[in-house]
Nucleic acid binder design. Sequence first.
DNA 1: TTCAACTTTGTACCGGTTACAAAATTGAAA
DNA 2: TTTCAATTTTGTAACCGGTACAAAGTTGAA
Lengths: 136, 136
Amino acid sequence: MKSIIEILKEHDIAPSMQRVKILEYLRNYKTHPTADMIYQALVDDIPTLSKTTVYNTLKTFTEKGILLALSLFENEVRYEYNKDPHIHFKCMKCNKIYDLNHSFDHYNDNLVDGHKILEHHVNLKGICKDCLKVEN
Amino acid sequence: MKSIIEILKEHDIAPSMQRVKILEYLRNYKTHPTADMIYQALVDDIPTLSKTTVYNTLKTFTEKGILLALSLFENEVRYEYNKDPHIHFKCMKCNKIYDLNHSFDHYNDNLVDGHKILEHHVNLKGICKDCLKVEN
DNA sequence: TTCAACTTTGTACCGGTTACAAAATTGAAA
DNA sequence: TTTCAATTTTGTAACCGGTACAAAGTTGAA
Ligand SMILES: [Mn+2]
Ligand SMILES: [Mn+2]
Ligand SMILES: [Zn+2]
Ligand SMILES: [Zn+2]
């Protein structure tokens, strides 16, 4: 697997310690975290870490195409490293966000009612597998 | 067409002047407005109107099932009265939000990867019909 | 070793939203 | 019609995710 430092260099980003740790976190934990979740997860490891650095870094990564920024359901931006086409499901009970490998290619580069479609986001909501088990 | 006051009464909501005006606005202008847009549109008519009232009212209407609250793309909640199944398209140029009558029934009451789907939101993004014309 | 460019940090601020308590309004009982 | 508790509205302060900005720290090439 490609190293975090390699990935950063390929995208013309200097691999500072903070940037490496943040990207590492996003590659390891595919939980679609918010900026604050990332900050909380890393601040023990980097006690001087600033939230501004997390926000700056996520902005840089998104602009350079390493990350995707998602507006899923609530009013916070969530970030993900996984760029394979997929859709999202959020459990209304445990709030976990799942990736589902359903593709919606039929919208890609298409006109719908005369509008040119450049992005599509499919967000499902319900009760997840695990929470369904507990319910019974 | 059913009167606004009838609709409110059917949902056990006292038809105050503010509530009537707010619901009237949402039924007349299907633009998926934010709380602030509604406030701006009505404050000339009701000079004493408070933003808190708008927020309170939208919360009440949503809880009682008169309105849908949508997290479409940016970090603001948008409200709509239209509850016919449809999907959304936002123009990246003029920022208008369009309703598209595409149905995704195949998710309704379905299990996907073992998860029980209760809601689905399809959000498309691109350049709208009108803006495509201007572009050339 | 030097120094300009880059990166990180802390603080103040912003905009959408919520909490809360006071004021105004309502409507049903007396 | 009057009364008064319940409901609704209002204004203010606070909250929270995010951004602006300037100072401090770090880096790396000359
Ligand atoms: Mn995902
Ligand atoms: Mn709509
Ligand atoms: Zn769950
Ligand atoms: Zn447009």
